[in-house]
Amino acid sequence: MTEALPFDSGSDDVLATAAAWKAEGRKVALATVVTTWGSSPRPEGSQLAIDETGAFVGSVSGGCIEGAVIKEGLAAMKDGRHRLLDFGVSDEQAWEVGLACGGKVQVFVERVE
């Protein structure tokens, strides 16, 4: 019987995957939902781990903004700088990618050193 890492909030164990990828020598970035307003699909603390090929586990939305977050994760891997991204209703926000559900989220993206 394999002992799965205990996890909370019913998500994949994103951190365990990030640590395992790092141990394999892959470049890794981590994205975390830090603030939500309105009907955003994933709660604060939801995470997405990305490797240098763009492979990812976890989620920060219902699929609406993952593409843009992965792009920023890849950029953070290169320049080492963290990012605080705002996503919301498309026409009110600088970001071209919006949440179809009308909610707003703020996502922190960082490189795993």
């Binding site: 890492l5 205990p6 990030a18 640590a19 490189r111 795993v112």
Partner: peptide, 17 residues
């Protein structure tokens, strides 16, 4: 995130602290 922080975080979660 520094590797040291990630390791310590994972240690605590595995030990259910």
């Amino acid at each position: 995130m520094k590797a040291e922080i990630l390791d310590k975080l994972q240690d605590a979660r595995r030990a259910r602290r």
